[in-house]
């Protein structure tokens, strides 16, 4: 019984070490656990599938910072690959200043994979201050929020933007975000301007968006690294890319760390009940 009591006083750095090993070992060993895409990842994927190639564009708002990169960047990249592979035009913008750098870097790498031309197949509008205001401005006229793209080129001189005025010309809006800005997209773009909104969020916040999924205010949801992994898997399965999966590899490590943390909780509770029992007067 003393064993459990001693165990509960262990230096936290031993726990840190175990967590580090639980991440490193699966990454090195490539367990390749089976994939089964979640229902809401599939719904978002299918929403993009239904958009006609070379027609109206999808708008993706990359509202995430490097702190959420491992979950959201693979998601963004997978969605960009999906759109460009299907020749679905793409408008990329961001309401997070650091999201601009990450999205720009991803586009710079992915566009050449599909021979996508800037201005014809995709545009990058960059960052704009004032989340809700920007979302509402796009609902009136995208030129109001973004008179130019991120590089200072007037929007009107970009061929694919010629027929795009507001959400009525954008069949799907996807917000990939690590903050509550997703709510603003649902409230303003969805409720006020009737845009179809999908989202990719950090796992931390995913549980909060289920009411929107259930009510149909969101067409689909990618939940953290699992959602990103699902999207990468679907892209590969449909032959849209052969690039190695980033989030997919990470899911092996997620599995092991989940088991480890569950083990910690069980051990901690055994120790707690043993200590409680010992403290009771005999």
């Amino acid at each position: 019984m003393k064993f459990f009591e001693k165990l509960s006083q262990i230096d936290r750095r031993w726990i840190f070490l175990l967590v580090a090993l639980a991440v490193i070992v699966p990454l090195l060993s490539r367990m390749g656990l089976p994939d089964k895409p979640g229902k809401y990842s599939l719904q978002l994927f299918e929403a993009v599938e239904r958009i006609q190639p070379n027609s109206q564009p999808v708008l993706i708002s990359a509202d995430y910072s490097p702190s959420m990169m491992p979950e959201l960047d693979p998601m963004f990249r997978a969605m960009v690959r999906h759109c460009l592979a299907r020749k679905v035009r793409l408008i990329v913008m961001t309401l997070d200043p650091t999201g601009a750098g990450l999205a720009e870097d991803a586009l710079r790498q992915i566009a050449p994979e599909y021979g996508a031309a800037y201005g014809r197949d995709y545009v990058f509008l960059g960052y704009k201050v004032g989340a809700a205001i920007v979302i509402m401005s796009i609902g009136e006229n995208i030129r109001q929020a973004y008179p130019t793209d991120a590089y200072g080129t007037p929007i009107d001189s970009l061929p694919m933007m010629a027929d795009v005025r507001n959400y009525a010309d954008i069949p799907l809006v996807v917000d990939i975000a690590g903050s509550a800005v997703i709510n603003s997209w649902v409230i303003f773009a969805g409720a006020r301007y009737k845009a179809r909104v999908g989202a990719g969020c950090t796992a931390v916040s995913s549980a909060d968006y289920y009411p929107f999924l259930q009510s149909g205010q969101m067409v689909g949801l990618l939940n953290g690294m699992k959602g990103a992994s699902d999207y990468e898997y679907l892209n590969q399965q449909r032959g849209y890319t052969s690039v190695p999966r980033v989030a997919g590899k990470g899911m092996d490590a997620v599995s092991i760390v989940h088991l480890l943390i569950m083990g910690f909780i069980v051990l901690g509770n055994i120790g707690y009940f043993v200590a409680k029992k010992n403290a009771q007067p005999k």
């Binding site: 990454l27 990169m69 796992a203 931390v204 990470g250 997620v254 943390i261």
Partner: peptide, 12 residues
């Protein structure tokens, strides 16, 4: 979900 989220950041 938070566990997955935080672990994902470390994995990255």
């Amino acid at each position: 979900n938070t566990v997955m989220g935080r672990v994902s950041l470390l994995i990255g």
